[in-house]
Design a protein around this nucleic acid. Structure first.
Lengths: 345, 345
DNA sequence: GTTAGCACTCGTCGAAAGAGAGTGCTAACA
DNA sequence: TGTTAGCACTCTCTTTCGACGAGTGCTAAC
């Protein structure tokens, strides 16, 4: 018959994990017998531990060491055993205090949030900046720049202002530019950049047929705002140094591997990919990156006006304080959503 | 009588340093006797080495090890012994190939240059971005944004375009804004931001006395471009991971110290402070940062239209290939100066 | 001034030994 | 049947010790 997780096993597993999270040392039966409030002897604990090991929830680094949680053990802990954690008063206060209130550049808000998160968790924070393509257009202006070039100023509904320098015909007049800008604004207002596809462009095309000589130029003009992947889905890292203090990374080669990942934006993106809403936890081998064995990631998506536009999370050793980290990521996500959807944006 | 550096001593010191740069191992008299073309025995070399040690140019990690260069030794090497190095053909070609030709955001050029430099040297690159205050104004525009707010677009003579969102009176008209912009442009054109001080502001003030109600607002408006220290003297780092491969940093605590410095922009700034033109080399203890003992910095300033606006350099262990690094930094600096002062900027 | 020879120093490597922590098993107990 | 005490066993970690090797400094001879 299959072994079952009774109440005592749960208690023991919880005790093992919590102790290991604190100490990073394999934990033995003595320790559990002493610290837990079950009134049983180490021998009994040993029997239970043997069962837990058979269930794949804990493992032994070597024969004569204590037990450490396996990935499956952490998973069980997170799903079923973990005490619900609320943010400490200080943390909450600190977040309130350090959250940017002013209308700042969106990039700044993102970067600052990541930094704060890494400081509060003592882990590495990863933030995926808002998908540029999902932001909605509000207004387009052109300004003269140099002969044959103009500045295109794009204002989005979330308040972001972007410049692009574009090529134009030398003989184009300011009036022409204004006219084109008006048509663009009129046709594209309210659309997300991603949505400005054929239908919209077609409308612009129609509108412009009167000034035939403008057409070619005009369509070239909006190109940069449509596929400017320059700051597309930027990834921000915070507190990478925190990992150096984790005992699991006392080995130099591990550090190297980890930091190599930190330099590969595309890997990081995959790790906190915002393809599903809500708070998500990836434990150890659950993420497929070889180099991130031994690491867990906690992340969630944030929204702006109801639409998911990015994600934010922390990365740390599998032996991390899941309860605290989850509470923090959750709170920060909500905070970010509030700020981004705030009154002035 | 004071000891003198004769030709043979120089040859030996050069050999020691070059060998140590390659191997990172203390170098003994045997090695030098074998590799150098002086036809003398190890014993003779030993005598000379003893002298060099007395001169403070080399030292022994412990009694029975070979010698390693001291900071003073490196200094002597750089000043007097080092063979002049020219860039390898591949490096030159690579720089030409990967140097941004297009008119890019200035930030991008800077960042890319740093990255390239770190890759070519296998060291960490540090780039101090252009002093914002030194760039000259070309044109100012205002665009409507939200009630009570406007976008100020600032075009500089180096081609940089900046946005600022500013507060304005609710009842100000587009015409008013245009008028103010014209006055700003007219009065400030050609001045560096730093220079826009009282005299210029006074002129603007005079010009605006006709529309008294605009004065207060107007002066508030230009404030953000005058002291916006947001991206003031940004520091870019490249190839920080290269340091992990240097044998002198196989010790975790050293890595920690070094990386802590990397996170302190103000320290890095001090290290490559552009207070003197030309190629500069700081060896080991010559920089006063405790944490950078054992590191050398090679840096130079770059200019835009004749004016020094920033600096770029590499940081590595004192045991670095000075000749190569110096040639590269020198070349990159000149390249950067050329790009920034190029035709379209 | 240069060189060979030699004793000496010091760090590194590997084996051996001891300590400590923890387990698994067995047998007794409630 | 579940729990416990006792005990042998295993494995790691640390320390110790000796051998080894690289390199020096000194001395005496060339």
């Amino acid at each position: 018959m299959p072994m079952q997780m009774d109440e005592r096993k749960k208690k023991i597993l919880r005790a093992i994990i919590q102790d290991y999270i604190m100490t990073a040392e394999p934990v033995g039966s003595r320790t559990i017998a002493r610290k837990s409030d079950l009134g049983v002897s180490p021998a009994t604990i040993r029997n239970e531990m043997s069962d837990l090991e058979e269930l794949g929830l804990i493992e032994q680094p070597h024969t004569s060491a204590g037990r450490i949680p396996s990935d499956a053990g952490y998973r069980y802990y997170v799903d079923a055993l973990m005490p619900p954690s609320t943010l400490s008063r200080e943390n909450k206060a600190r977040i309130e205090r350090e959250t940017p209130k002013k209308i700042l550049e969106i990039e700044n808000i993102i970067a600052q949030t990541g930094k704060l998160l890494s400081q509060l968790t003592n882990l590495t924070s990863i933030v995926l900046s808002p998908k540029r393509g999902r932001s909605h257009l509000s207004q387009i202006y052109f300004l003269p720049y140099q002969p044959g070039k103009a500045i295109m100023v794009v204002v989005k509904e979330n308040g972001v202002v972007e410049n692009h320098i574009i090529d134009v015909d030398e003989d184009i007049t300011i009036e022409d530019l204004r006219h084109v800008a008006d048509i663009f604004t009129c046709k594209m207002k309210g659309y997300a950049l991603d949505e400005v596809k054929k239908s919209v462009l077609h409308g612009i095309y129609d509108e412009l047929t009167r000034q035939k000589n403008l057409i070619n130029t005009a369509l070239e003009m909006i190109e940069p705002i449509l596929n400017d992947d320059q700051d597309h889905d930027k990834v921000y890292l915070g507190g990478t140094l925190n990992m150096l203090n984790q005992p699991e990374f006392k080995d130099l080669s591990k550090i190297k591997n980890l930091f190599k990942i930190f330099e590969r934006d595309e890997c990081l993106k995959k790790v906190i990919e915002p393809n599903q809403d809500g708070l998500r936890v990836t434990i150890g081998g659950e993420n497929n990156l070889e180099e991130l064995q031994g690491c867990s990631v906690i992340y969630a998506t944030y929204r702006e006006n109801g639409e998911t536009i990015g994600s934010i999370g922390v990365l740390g050793p599998t032996r991390m304080d899941y309860a605290k980290a989850m509470a923090l990521v959750d709170f920060m996500t909500k905070k970010l959503t509030t700020i981004l959807s705030g009154p002035h944006r």
